[in-house]
Nucleic acid binder design. Structure first.
Lengths: 228, 228
DNA sequence: TGTACATCAGTGAACGCGCGTTCACTGATGTAC
DNA sequence: TGTACATCAGTGAACGCGCGTTCACTGATGTAC
């Protein structure tokens, strides 16, 4: 029993180490992750990896899932650390947390939000962790509505847009006014647009003051949403 | 003379065909473009490609440059087709043109705006063609300012942001009010955020009505900018 | 107009490398009586 | 507590494949006199 769980612990440690080494390789090779290279770095023969992961794609999937969760943790923790009533503070904290995580883990960010890996299809269980950042953002809007600090914009949406948004809201916040959700999605889109532009080199030689640019751009979206 | 230019024409045709075949391969292989696969498709032996491109990276660079130019052409043509005074119409036309080009050429879009290709460094001559879409957007703002239809927002920017934007404006539209340029950049960021989300699968199962979603989101940015 | 020479396109073989995955195997670690 | 057996981790060789690039070469196409 004890002996058994010792072997299990060693095994879990191995799995962690393989993932850690693989993460390091992502940084240089991008998604062309090589099992053999990982095995070499661990001082094992390449076939030994198959004791822990049934194929290269499974290893990649594990890395993707963990990355989504790490990003989700960072974002939710940042939101939770701010006074619930300070909507704008929460918005900025959430956005900054996503950016900080991305800057600290550029290769993993690229794996999640960059071009799809050719020949790799993400399994369904990435959907839930992938939706944590947008849910955190929308949660700020929901809270603002609930305590009256935030009022929904008064505008008519084209019917297909309204219907899509109503359907989308149904799962986590039924009745959330569609115009407000639309602006929340705008903020979500812009957040990852900003991060991608910065990380993929689009700001090189254009915007030297990255932190301030980011804060100002996310503030513009907070204005658009009407956050107090 | 005639004979010489005949050989030159044949050669130019070959170069075009190689690029066309390579573009097709991008769609399935992503940036892992294989010279040998291209040669196979052309019915040549792989070394023959070296008559036309000194290396794989040079072929990739040629494809990137052409893609930037194709996107730039599409965007500028769409803008030019709208009445100069119809600022909002131009904004929508420009954004839609970028999206349409991306949907029609997803692999090339990913090459330009997706994760950087590991081990490949884009040469400097991509900078100019890459800036055509944002310049088209900012041109709308400039024209609106010039004829008084658009007034710059009245707000103070943090100094580093203001300085970066003033420096950026210096090249193509000196004196363009920085708060307005900031909002133009927001629109640019959001445009490519929208396209990337759509193309990289982020909207799957979330937003079925893509066209309408896109138009509404770009309209929100036009509102933020204050386009009439 | 015809001939000698130079340029160029494309071939085929080879170099040296990397990859994911399978398989039969050796030893060590655990489990059951 | 000791022994027989099962499980598991890791090895090493191999399969079959792909890649970018170099090189000496054959023919055809163009150029200069």
């Amino acid at each position: 029993m004890v002996a058994h769980s010792l072997r299990a612990r060693v095994r879990a440690g191995m799995i962690d180490e393989i993932k850690a080494v693989a993460r390091r390789h992502l940084a240089t090779d991008g998604a062309n992750l090589s099992l053999r290279a990982v095995a070499r770095d661990m001082g094992m023969v390449s076939s030994a990896i198959y004791r822990y992961f049934p194929s290269r794609d499974d290893l990649l999937t594990a890395l993707i899932l963990e990355a989504y969760d790490a990003l989700g943790d960072a974002v939710e923790a940042a939101d939770a650390a701010v006074d619930r009533a300070d909507l704008r503070g929460r918005w900025h904290a959430t956005c900054r947390a996503a950016r900080s995580w991305a800057l600290a883990h550029p290769a993993e960010y690229a794996l999640l939000y960059g071009s799809p890996v050719p020949g790799y299809a993400a399994p369904d269980d990435t959907v839930a962790p992938a939706s944590r950042p947008p849910l955190a953002l929308v949660g700020i809007l929901r809270d603002g509505l609930a305590d009256g600090r935030l009022s929904p914009p008064d505008e008519e949406l084209p019917e297909p847009v309204r219907a899509d948004l109503a359907e989308l809201a149904a799962g986590f916040s039924p009745g959330l006014p569609e115009p407000l959700l639309a602006r929340g999605l705008a903020g979500w889109t812009q957040l990852f647009g900003l991060i991608s532009f910065e990380l993929f080199g689009r700001l090189n030689g254009v915007i030297p003051h990255r932190d301030e640019h980011f804060d100002h751009q996310t503030a513009l979206m907070a204005d658009l949403i009407g956050l107090p």
